[in-house]
Simulated scan of single mutants.
Amino acid sequence: MKENRQATIRAAGVLADDLNAQGVEPSEAAQVAACWAHTATVILWCERLDLLPARISAGRELTGAVRAGVEDLAAHPATAGFADPAVNPAMRVTPGLAALAELGDALAASPDHGWDTWTVGDLYQELSAEARKERALAQTPRFIAYPLVDWTVGRAMLDLGDDAKDIRVIDPACGTGHLLVAAVRKVRHLPHRMGMLRIDRAVDAVRGVDLDPYAALIARWRLAVECLPYPRPAIWGDLDPDLPIHVAPANSLLDTHPLLEPGQYHA
């Protein structure tokens, strides 16, 4: 699995070199390349679960396959940012076909992770040096995330008792959404044998902000995945267009934003 990730990272380096040769400034080229590789990975993840039509997985030319996948994802309000160059740098410029060939090979050899989005979230940190260095992206490991949510969100739900269904939670530096996904799953399981909260209400209870617009987009995508209808299989178009997903790019220390107004959260 690690070797497969390294192949994708190497392919992103080839893309960055190609973009640099096209005249794109090095740091911009590296971020565009990282998002190209990551966006293609997200689309392939969706294809393998039949959420999107098989294009990358069917061996279609990668530029067209990625662009078509982006259009499909962007048709839903929760993930419209995939087509926005201000959010997704991959939409700013297209690498050459020869450079994309290595990415295609890496994607073809990548493992199928089923419905788990965790590895896709981690991959962005590995691909983007800019996100790590300039925006301090550092994902919370899974073995820390779930206990952390238990100790915070779980405790707040117990304190709220019968009002636990009205809990409000924020991650003010959410990255690609590890803690948000863990919190949604925690909030769904109400205490005191109160049963299960509907997924849309659980997602509505959880809010996130992050400095990195692309990371926030991936967090939105992951929460949308949590909302896919049951029983599966489903397609991306089955998602409710009015999903209450509250994740936005913002600086939680310096910005004023409705999600950052004090006094509205229990955890």
Results as ranks from 00 to 15, higher is better:
Q6Y: 02
A7C: 12
T8E: 12
I9F: 14
R10G: 13
R10V: 08
A12D: 01
V14I: 14
L15H: 04
D17T: 09
D18I: 12
N20S: 15
G23S: 08
E28D: 13
Q31F: 01
V32M: 13
A33I: 04
A34F: 01
W36H: 06
A37R: 09
H38E: 05
V42G: 04
V42A: 13
L44W: 05
R48K: 09
L49A: 12
L52N: 10
P53H: 06
I56W: 09
S57Y: 01
A58Q: 12
G59L: 10
R60A: 07
T63P: 02
T63L: 03
G64N: 02
V66R: 04
A68K: 02
V70D: 06
E71R: 13
D72I: 05
A75P: 07
H76I: 05
A80V: 03
D84H: 01
A86M: 06
A86T: 02
M91Y: 00
M91D: 00
R92T: 05
G96R: 06
G96Q: 09
G96L: 10
A98Y: 06
E102N: 02
L103T: 03
G104S: 10
D105W: 02
A106T: 00
A108C: 13
P111G: 01
P111C: 01
D112N: 06
D112Y: 10
G114D: 00
W115P: 01
D116C: 08
T117F: 12
W118K: 12
W118L: 10
T119N: 14
V120T: 15
G121E: 05
D122Q: 15
L123N: 10
Q125F: 08
Q125G: 12
A131E: 04
R132D: 05
R132K: 15
K133V: 13
E134P: 00
A136V: 10
A136G: 08
L137Q: 11
Q139W: 05
T140H: 04
A145G: 11
A145H: 11
Y146T: 11
V149E: 03
T152E: 13
G154D: 04
R155C: 00
L158A: 02
G161T: 09
D163E: 14
I167V: 14
I167E: 06
V169K: 07
I170T: 11
I170N: 01
D171C: 10
A173K: 01
G175Y: 13
V184R: 08
R185F: 01
K186S: 07
V187S: 02
V187R: 07
L190R: 14
P191T: 04
P191K: 11
H192A: 07
M194Q: 15
M194H: 12
G195W: 14
I199H: 07
D200M: 07
D200S: 15
V203Y: 13
A205G: 12
A205H: 09
Y214Q: 07
A215W: 07
W221R: 06
R222T: 15
A224G: 09
A224Q: 11
V225D: 09
E226W: 08
C227K: 14
C227S: 15
R232P: 08
P233E: 10
A234H: 14
I235K: 15
D238Y: 14
L239R: 13
P241S: 03
P241Y: 04
L243D: 06
P244F: 01
H246W: 06
A248D: 11
A250I: 13
A250T: 04
N251D: 15
S252G: 07
L254M: 06
L260V: 09
E261K: 10
E261V: 10
Y265W: 08
H266M: 05
H266E: 14
A267C: 05
A267S: 15
